[in-house]
């Protein structure tokens, strides 16, 4: 029990950890013609799970953006080279449209311009061993100045 308490105090509360869909700290800013909102499309080990669906209409502060980009940022601990297939969906769990297959060694970023679907998700293939797989989505909103 004491060990658990010590681990808790050292590592901090897990409630503070980011998860799929969460805002990225420091990822919200306005510059030039754009207001930018950054969220995790994937954040976690994802050894056997896909990245949660993100509803851009209700799951983000700004609603549907003008366009978005998704970057595969980190594949920490992965035994191989995982692929994250970024997809758009018109409805939750609906028929997906493939945007791109992201890998760190190949194409690691995709831009969806203009916005095409209300929902996006990521399908992870080859995530064995991953301890930290991160893909971030950056939403670009036109600023009213």
């Amino acid at each position: 029990m004491l060990r658990l308490l010590a681990a808790y105090l050292v590592l901090g509360v897990t409630a503070g950890w980011a998860a799929d869909g969460d805002a990225v700290a420091g990822g919200q800013y306005a510059t030039g013609p754009w207001a930018v909102e950054t969220r995790y499309l994937c954040d976690g080990d994802h050894t056997a799970t896909d990245c949660n669906e993100l509803d851009l209409h209700v799951g983000t502060a700004g609603g549907l953006p003008a366009y978005l980009t998704v970057d595969l940022v980190t594949t920490g601990g992965c035994a191989g080279a995982p692929t994250v297939t970024v997809r758009g969906l018109t409805a939750p769990l609906g028929a997906p449209s493939v945007y791109a297959d992201l890998t760190t060694a190949g194409t690691s970023s995709v831009r969806v311009d203009p916005i095409r679907h209300r929902h996006i998700d990521g399908v992870v293939v080859g995530g064995a061993g991953c301890t930290d797989l991160e893909a971030v989505v950056r939403l670009f909103y036109r600023r009213v100045r």
Partner: peptide, 11 residues
């Protein structure tokens, strides 16, 4: 149909 962010969307 819904309005969100920059867009008003009608399907």
């Amino acid at each position: 149909a819904y309005a969100s962010g920059e867009w008003s969307v009608v399907e």
